[in-house]
Write a protein that binds this DNA or RNA. Structure first.
Lengths: 219, 219, 219, 219
DNA sequence: AATGAATGAGTTTTCATTCAT
DNA sequence: TATGAATGAAAACTCATTCAT
């Protein structure tokens, strides 16, 4: 539904000169750095305008409203994360190992985006198109995790638990440790801690052993 | 002009119209239900006014600004939860069992307060007095959990892990499953799932067995 | 129309116990010190309430609105000044001398009341009863001055000028020097300066001599 | 991106919608007529908005607050008056004559601005930047008068009096006659009366004669 | 009668969005 | 097309006045 975010290597045959190529992306990047740092309601369109060095009219030409811009940023971000996770998971490793990669990538992604998603999932009564689309994106992301867990269950590395709920737990753990981390906390240590507890909790004997032996978790 | 001697010393003989008893609490309750359902910026003072059937001036008499009201609601809520947890934890049970109670009470508390604290996790750069105080309240809450975990470690029911981080993981897990639960999810099932995974992850043999054998914990 | 402001020596036979005798006056005094120092719109009824140590309901029992209170204060003040001037003028002195007394008393009166009358004479369109009454009070005051000038004209001590306009000039001069006086300015010096210029301007030879010889004006 | 070289250096090639020419002035004029007629607290921003036929946002774009707008109007007005006075005084006439011009211009200026400066003389205890700046403007205005008087003293046309105080007297006289003028009063007559009394009061023989002989001064 | 709690109409200001160039 | 000026609906808050005790 949204155009590809990275410039494709061969620009598709354009009819009519596309207005300032790459401008949409530039706006998206600038907006991301802003929305990642401040809450939705603390961000003003003027800030975005200033951050991406573009006129306000232009901004509105590309994104018809603040909400749309915000969601575009969120969708873009979560999509990139999903792509990363898919890449991390599309290997021949044992599923239990993949959990480690997932946690690492995800925590790294949110490390500098602590205010991401602050707007999302408010006012449940409003079922706007955005809300629906958000669920799609969010679902696509969590599905990567869930399917990995499913595979792990199939491989006897994770116990027969409800992987939907387990996925939310894992995401929640990561959010928690990231939100309330201290300045001394290091990414790797938190990754290790999360994997340790989560796999300890959901893994089978086998699963735990696989995770434990491979990566000597540095505190 | 001096208080009648027959009156007890404490209830000083108020002159003029006495403050409507319990009004502050009434406002606080009404505001809680509103802030629990909608995001801070979606709540308007007029809504609160209407919800508690009180004049706007009165609202401002008790809480001098919207922010103050919001924080009062948050502080009140988190404090009540903390008190509940302290009660739940002040028993002779084995520490591992107490984790079960903590999870149950906490999830129950947030069951209808899914949007609580939405504002609070924002803009930490503003070090207002409120922000500081929030940290105090939040710290007092998490301390209850952490100390329980510490006791569990001491009792050999939880492994020697960083209980600060473990606390955040536990809170994060609960937040995650609550936020993204479906309409079919039941409180007890989620409690069980969280305890299962968390204690599986952090517990020792002993700890796990303690939790596992006394599975059915009702409200 | 308004009750006598000073307690008469023999209290008139009251039927029904008069509510807290002297309270009205107390309020009036307290309000005066407030309105003399701050502008009408900067004064809040709560300030008045606090200043006179009386409940807000009581305040409204005696003065039905802020405006009424304000005008009562103004009327009271201007009336007292008028009484003073009448006393100062009811002597056998030559009229030119009386001007000196007028200036002295008037400047002294306003010395600590620099914000008096700030509200008055706004919004000409509103012809409230207050506005009319204010004109009566103000007229009574300026009449004392004007009649003194008339007498001075008759006595050949002031030139045949329009004494209405001259009165306004004199009042304006006093207002000007008082409003923009420095901390070093002394009352007597300003009185002398005003009398000097005014009588120099309106007086005849005779009139000027009379004023000049009597009070050696210290600059 | 850099300005075309054919354009002159100064009118930089503004991009986007150019500011409505003269809009700031239009607002200023409209606000002046309003503030000249009504007191600060009786003026609402909506009135100003309506008076100058501009959106409220625009009003706030040019003046960030009601106070700022008010002071801008005052500063603008007093500055224009000062410029007028400087022009009136920058001639070869004898200083005593100049007083006549000063009075004429000043009274004419305030003829339709009887409520000007109503806020300004308030609450001097608040030493805001505006208050300071106001003193600068007001000082610049009175200085023109004072220097004229000083010159007149030097020329032997005014007695050796305190010209600071004399300036305040003159301004006060003008304010007084203007404030309390009747509908029948004519500008020229009041000007004549003020000059007559003031110069009679402060002038030397010479000074008075100079003013007196060239009585009829029209605009 | 006296008091102070309760009230709500009225005002300033913000900021997402539109529009003229 | 790109730009920034212009717009006005919406929202927090104040304070004179009323009312219950």
């Amino acid at each position: 539904m949204s155009p590809p975010l990275s410039q494709p290597a061969f620009p598709r045959p354009r009819r009519g000169r596309p207005p300032t190529p790459g401008l949409r992306d530039r706006i998206l990047r600038a907006a991301e750095t802003i929305f990642a740092r401040r809450d939705y309601h603390e961000v003003q369109m003027d800030d975005v305008v200033e951050a991406c060095g573009v006129g306000k009219g232009t901004l509105y030409r590309y994104f018809p409203s603040k909400q749309r811009l915000y969601f575009a940023v969120m969708f873009d971000g979560i999509q990139r994360l999903r792509v990363e996770l898919e890449a991390a998971v599309g290997t021949e490793e044992p599923p239990a190992q993949k959990v480690h990669r997932i946690v690492h990538r995800t925590l790294a992604f949110f490390w500098d985006r602590r205010f991401f998603f602050s707007l999302i999932h408010r006012s449940e009564h409003k079922s706007t198109g955005e809300a629906r689309e958000w669920l799609r994106y969010r679902g696509a992301l969590s599905r990567v995790i869930r399917e990995t867990l499913d595979a792990a269950v199939a491989a006897g590395q994770v116990r027969r638990i409800d992987t939907r709920i387990a996925t939310e737990m894992l995401l929640g753990m990561m959010r928690g440790v990231n939100r309330y981390r201290t300045d001394d906390d290091r990414l790797d240590a938190l990754v290790a801690a999360v994997v340790d507890v989560f796999m300890g909790g959901v893994g089978t004997q086998t699963g735990r052993r696989i995770v434990a032996e491979r990566r000597p978790v540095r505190a």
